[in-house]
Amino acid sequence: MRTILTPEMGGYRVWGQVWGGCRQGLGICAVPKAAGFGTEARHQLQSRGSSKRLGSLGDKPFRRLLQPENLSREELVDVLREAVVDQKGPLVTLNKPQGLPVTGKPGELTLVSVLPELSQCLGLGERELQVVRASGKETSGLVLLSSCPQTASRLQKFFTHSQRARKPTATYCAVTDGIPAASEGKIQAALKMEHTDGASLVVPVKSPSRKDFLKGVKWTLSHFRVLASGSGCALVQLQPLTAFPSQLQVHMVLQLCPVLGDHKYSACVGTVLGQRFLLPAENTKPQRQVLDEALLSRLHLTPAQAAQLPLHIHLHRLHLPGTRPRDAPIELLAPLPSYFSRTLQCLGLQYQ
């Protein structure tokens, strides 16, 4: 089986016509293009049951979170089967829960490790699924799977071309602790991966030299736009224009607005007398995110519960090419997880 992955990119939802290299093609339905989040996208952002009273969550605000380590292979296949958004032709799309790794070490329970069983469960027979696009373990959002290598290759070429042309194809939602100084803009940073004490961390590089780039430093670029703000937090739209592990998390840290649930990089933002500043990433060890008492009260969380807060980055929307060269681009949407909607409700983050 061949798996094609791109860091921090997401998946898809499919509907109605034919697109792709295999006989059955890909079913999709165009959504009119609009700046930012359109009306339909706003509705899609609200997960089912988001209007329930906060008190109904009781002492377990994250009770629906997936814990792969507690599941058998059969149970994980059942979870993924229920997460399928659509299945048309060679393509299967599902809304990946936060916390599910796509790949891992031999013997670990991951999405890729159970694809043979999932293929059988979905009636694909010998046509085993492969990953076309998926986000990272801690990120929720849609994943696109294909049982047709030609279709997978064709879609992958589209995403590769779009990335080289700096055309965004993925739109994420994030909730940040802090409000960006500008309501919209681009974040550019040179990043590198460092491996220390058995952990891998992404760190920014100031004024990188040509030698740095030869050693693995990459220029990264993301577009951001604040959709709503309140209670010292913001709902932010993020569009990565490059692909690098943890790119969105690190970019928001550079804005001094770490993503809620970022227990890896948020410690790089310090505070003195109410003013935030950036700590050297090389000298800052990852730790559980610390939220102030006012925010904890707003979120109806205890410090112990906040230590389990999931990362609030969700792949909400993707663009695909039209079925024919002259057709309009297609938007694919995914609803938010219940914990994400709960957070928006607690913070009173509404669209204007």
Rank of each mutant, 00 (worst) to 15 (best):
T3C: 02
I4D: 12
T6S: 04
Y12F: 13
W15V: 14
Q17P: 05
G20F: 13
G21M: 07
C22Y: 06
G25V: 07
L45Q: 11
Q46L: 15
S47C: 11
G49D: 04
G49L: 07
G49R: 03
K52P: 00
G58I: 04
F62N: 04
R64K: 03
E74N: 01
E74G: 02
E74K: 05
L76K: 06
V79I: 13
L80P: 02
R81T: 09
A83L: 04
K88I: 15
L91S: 05
P97D: 01
T103L: 14
G104D: 06
P106W: 00
T110C: 04
L111C: 04
L118W: 00
S119Y: 04
L122S: 01
R127K: 08
E128A: 10
L129A: 02
V131A: 01
V132T: 03
R133V: 09
G136F: 07
E138R: 02
V143M: 02
L144E: 15
L144K: 07
S147R: 02
A152S: 15
A152R: 15
A152F: 12
S153I: 08
S153Y: 11
K157F: 06
K167N: 11
A182F: 05
A189D: 03
E194M: 02
H195D: 03
T196Y: 01
A199D: 06
A199P: 00
S200A: 13
L201W: 00
P204L: 02
V205S: 01
K211R: 09
L214T: 05
V217D: 02
W219Y: 08
L221M: 08
H223A: 13
L227Y: 01
A228R: 05
Q239R: 13
Q239A: 05
T242W: 06
S246W: 01
S246L: 01
Q247F: 09
V250R: 07
V250F: 04
V253M: 04
V253H: 04
V253G: 02
V259W: 11
L260M: 03
L260C: 02
D262M: 02
G274I: 09
P286K: 11
R288A: 10
Q289E: 08
V290R: 14
L291H: 09
L296R: 09
R298P: 05
R298Y: 07
L301Y: 07
A307M: 11
A307I: 09
L311K: 12
H312F: 13
H314I: 12
H314T: 11
L315Q: 14
L318I: 15
P321M: 15
P321E: 14
D327V: 12
I330W: 11
I330F: 11
L333A: 12
L336M: 14
S341N: 15
T343W: 12
T343G: 07
